[in-house]
Write a protein that binds this DNA or RNA. Structure first.
Lengths: 347, 347
DNA sequence: GTTGATTCCGAAAGCGGTTTCGGGATAGCA
DNA sequence: TGCTATCCCGAAACCGCTTTCGGAATCAAC
């Protein structure tokens, strides 16, 4: 249990009969050290298993060599596969520099602000990744005012002057709704996400836009705002289906909601994709095993973490944040829940 | 973009007309500072928004006040909801002390060892959480030899002298298999996970144990080792179902595998829970939306992160690692895929 | 052989806290 | 009033590494 004392810079210097400063510079690639000395030093370093004390280094350089990923306080457990994928991508990006990844998980909105404050003003991290921005998000203002490097996974209503990586939510939902319209549907319900999320707003806009383009009047009685979980989707769809004039199709703001919608449809003895069509949003691979397999808008999640990391590193290095804004598009994954309009025969 | 310079200990001391050392001790709860001074100091601290530089603090104390969660290099994306839940729990535990959580994601086994080495010998963290241990796991030996605090999510073959939190895998699978036996099934297939994982080994043991108890001979031709993803489960089940003497039920090592098994069953025009029974393992909530809803062994994941964190903190504080070993049990969640044995009428 | 320019390394001052130690001030007691 | 015990606080070393600066040594050039 006695930990063998670590070799520190001093030991290395003594061993090599050099000064600590020389060894340090040799290790950090300074130009004023002769190549052979550099060789000697690096060899001795691996030989003695020297790992610089990161805290000392961070203190001396003022660079934390770490970034934090701030997980939003409330999000449904079903949506969480994304978090893991994203962390993996972030890690990939950061480890090329040997940087660390912190995750910070707040329990409330105020707690979140406090945590961010602590993170950025205690030298723990040199950058922050934010997710799920609100329409106008206090966290972003906080970071901007502090002049602290950050990147947002998503956009706010006002997003010109910072870095972000986002999916074109509006276009995605518009694509979904337009697909249903092309299948003959005219009465299309929309299951939205809470509108304080900007992406929720954008998705609603996409829905409206598709209708407008097709000349279908917007009917707010078939638009429901629900949390992004299956139960919420199920009850929202239930309301609609049990109403006098139910939609013949649904566009959902998430796959988890869509799974609930499918459940509501099954419960009523109907068949999704035949009696009622459904399109989800997220492209969860699990949707393949839904009943029936869920048609959905798949967003390219795989690289998102990687790209967010790269952007953040660039901004930390001094790049203009506004020059790093990436907008990707989702694509329609055709499975079995979106079919042509039929004669309504289900009540 | 100009960051307003942070207030440091010196500023606070000047402002209060005290010494840095006094202020430091006041803030850190030393007994030799008068209560009124402590008051003065703490008030001034919040007033000036003083946040101690964490790197300086860590350097001085030698305590990293952070732990790392090491994500195993290979794991299927479908199983990842767990990671996120677990991180949340870990965070809860750590934030009560204001500690940080790092996540480290290796790309290969060697890389993983290297990363752990770097983590523990560079002062970044004061403890490590390991997951998915192999039967005998090099990482554990590494940490033990270094005398470095750690806790394992899972057990190894030899697990007496370190801390762990685990589900009784053997009992869980035994419960599942016994349930099927009670339903009349005699020919029960097993979809296992790669046996270098210790949990995979334990689950296989549970399967064998249930059979032995029921006096059913072990037949290795209906035992398949597959990766923990849906495709693998599907092809494994397909092999079995297309064989001359197919099982009437399957026990799976994961829900993701089970989803694939369900797909294989559907593909053949059969109905899970009627023609063929299936029990999964994990208790993924998504299983409710499977076709049909998946019967499964649910492990209590919610607290696992929290408990792992608490254990690790205790060990870091000096507790005997061997005194922190927690074994939980999974429970059978009855949904629709496990039904009584029928006359075989499906080929 | 002196000069000037290069190369390479050592000295030393931080980075921003923590912690041990010792002593001045105050209080307690005779 | 004098002496000791107690309570607070200041001084200073230290944690391990980085980085600027200056100077010794080497080399080329005249």
């Amino acid at each position: 249990m006695v930990s063998p004392k670590r070799t520190k810079l001093k030991d290395l210097a003594l061993h090599l009969d050099l000064t600590e400063s020389t060894v340090s510079r040799a290790l950090n690639g300074y130009a004023d050290i002769s190549p052979k000395t550099v060789d000697r030093v690096t060899q001795a370093a691996v030989q003695l298993g020297y790992k610089p004390n990161q805290n000392a280094r961070r203190l001396a350089t003022g660079q934390a060599e770490a970034v934090a990923y701030v997980i939003p306080q409330n999000h449904s457990s079903l949506a969480e596969p994304f978090v893991s994928q994203l962390l993996r991508g972030l890690n990939d990006s950061l480890s090329r520099r040997g940087w660390d990844l912190l995750v910070s998980h707040a329990v409330s909105a105020e707690d979140e602000a406090a945590k961010i404050h602590r993170l950025i003003s205690s030298g723990r991290v040199s950058g922050v990744v934010l997710t799920r921005p609100f329409r106008n998000d206090a966290r972003i203002k906080l970071l901007q005012d502090a002049g602290f490097p950050f990147v947002v996974h998503g956009r706010c209503s006002h997003c010109d002057d910072y870095s972000w990586y986002d999916i074109d939510n509006e276009l995605a939902i518009k694509t979904a709704a337009t697909h249903l319209i092309a299948l003959g549907h005219q009465r299309i319900g929309f299951i939205g996400a809470p509108l304080y999320y900007n992406f929720a707003f954008q998705r609603l806009e996409g829905y409206k836009s598709a209708l407008a383009e097709a000349g279908i009047p917007y009917d707010e009685t078939i638009v429901e705002i629900a949390e992004m979980k299956d139960d919420a989707g199920e009850s929202a769809a239930s309301n609609q289906l049990d109403s006098g004039k139910p939609p013949t199709a649904f566009v959902c703001s998430s796959d988890t909601q869509a799974l609930g919608v499918l459940a509501a449809i099954r419960t009523r003895g109907l068949t999704a994709g035949e009696d009622v069509s459904v399109i989800g949003y997220d492209g969860l691979s699990i949707g393949r095993h839904a009943n029936p397999p869920l048609t959905t808008m798949a967003q390219p999640q795989a690289q998102s973490g990687r790209e967010l990391g790269d952007i953040l590193l660039a901004v930390i290095d001094g790049d203009d944040p506004a020059s790093h804004q990436i907008l990707k598009r989702a694509e329609l994954v055709l499975r079995n829940t979106a079919g042509p309009l039929r004669d309504r025969n289900y009540h």
